[in-house]
Simulated assay, not measured.
Amino acid sequence: MPVDPQPQAVLSPLTESAVFLTLTVAEGAEQAVRDLLPELGGLVRSVGFRLPDEGLTCIVGVGAELWDRTFDGPRPAALHPFREVRGARHHAPSTPGDLFLHLRALRLFPCFELARLVRTRLGDAVEVIDEVHGFRYFDRRDLLGFVDGTENPVGDDAAAAVLVGDEDPDFAGGTYVMTQKYLHDLDGWQATSVEAREHAVGRRMLDDVELDDATKPTDSHVALTTIVEEDGTEREILRDNMPFGSIADGEYGTYFIGYAADPDVPERMLQRMFVGEPEGNTDRLLEFSTAVTGNLFFVPSTAMLDDPPPARTAAVADEPDPAHAHGDLGIGDLRGTG
């Protein structure tokens, strides 16, 4: 199936507000999701046309299990369920999520209205597992007081880091998105010195300048999330992290959202953060930040949204894999043995 490599609005400029919705899809309701995909553009326009200065966009991602339940044919080559990471002291959990919506605009209310329309459109087919309303904080800082997204690639570098290309031609123009919700111990963080905070992050707090190699600890966040190959190539992702919080619930956090052409890149970052590089040398930020969700989704191109892959029929979906019909190794199939 030929695919126009035009991506969804992944490379659009960062905005001031966002809504992040993680949904699960009821068994047997997969067609409702497939039917929604070509309609998303119209829903965005119905809200955004009245608010042309808001820059309203909606990015949709599909999880591995829902993909297999919904579409016939091949799956994106690197799509799989989020792989939890468990170190000696820190844990990045894998949590439920079939469908993901990243809604962005200048202000929150267009995102809210679009989310409401999508939720109404899907009805009982889905359950909202997680809803986060993100906002830009002072000077684009997170709630820990540091500027977030400083090292995002731009222009052609961003496209190269984010978009699937000839390595998986059926899904060119798509991307993968990893999401995690982190809750912060702000009281504990604020009780530490500015120098200790800078060493945990790997940047100066005031001017956002990265610490030099002689000063930057090897267990700082910057050091552990910098992936450099043996040939010197640095692997990048595009982050659109946002602060969020609830005064009533006493929850203050960062919603991590990273787009990449290959999920192996953010997965390696998580391995280094939670297990350590070397093992045991874990991210200092995890002493104050706890991951409570974890998901991975594939974000199709706009052409694939407009013309989704064929629906997976019930007969195909229920047909057992011959290699596993009688056990993982096929043991027990006695036909033709005697």
Rank of each mutant, 00 (worst) to 15 (best):
N152E: 10
P169S: 08
V128C: 14
E84M: 14
H80P: 08
D148P: 01
V154M: 13
G63P: 03
D148L: 02
A77Q: 07
R86Q: 15
H184Q: 09
D156Q: 13
F82D: 06
A115R: 03
H91R: 13
A115I: 02
P52A: 06
R45H: 08
H91M: 08
R116E: 10
G134S: 02
P74W: 06
G63W: 08
E167G: 11
A92N: 03
A125H: 02
G61Y: 03
L101F: 09
M178N: 14
V164W: 01
D72W: 01
F146E: 05
L183T: 14
F49I: 15
D124L: 05
G145L: 03
P76A: 12
R107A: 12
I59D: 09
V162T: 10
P52N: 00
G155M: 04
H80K: 15
G145Q: 01
L51S: 01
A77S: 10
T70E: 06
M178I: 13
D53V: 09
G48H: 03
P52H: 02
E113S: 08
R136V: 12
A158F: 00
L43G: 00
F82P: 04
G155S: 06
V62N: 05
D72I: 00
A88G: 11
V118M: 09
R69M: 09
E54H: 04
L51C: 07
L79P: 01
P110C: 02
P93W: 03
R75M: 13
V62T: 06
R86Y: 15
L101W: 07
T95A: 04
T57I: 10
T179A: 14
D72Y: 05
R45A: 11
V177S: 07
D72A: 15
R116L: 13
V47H: 05
D157K: 13
T70D: 04
R116K: 13
D142V: 04
P76M: 07
H90I: 12
D156I: 12
M178S: 13
R45S: 12
P81N: 14
D148Q: 00
T95E: 07
D157T: 09
D124R: 04
D170P: 05
V126A: 13
H91K: 10
D142W: 00
V85K: 11
P96W: 04
C58L: 14
E151Y: 13
D53I: 11
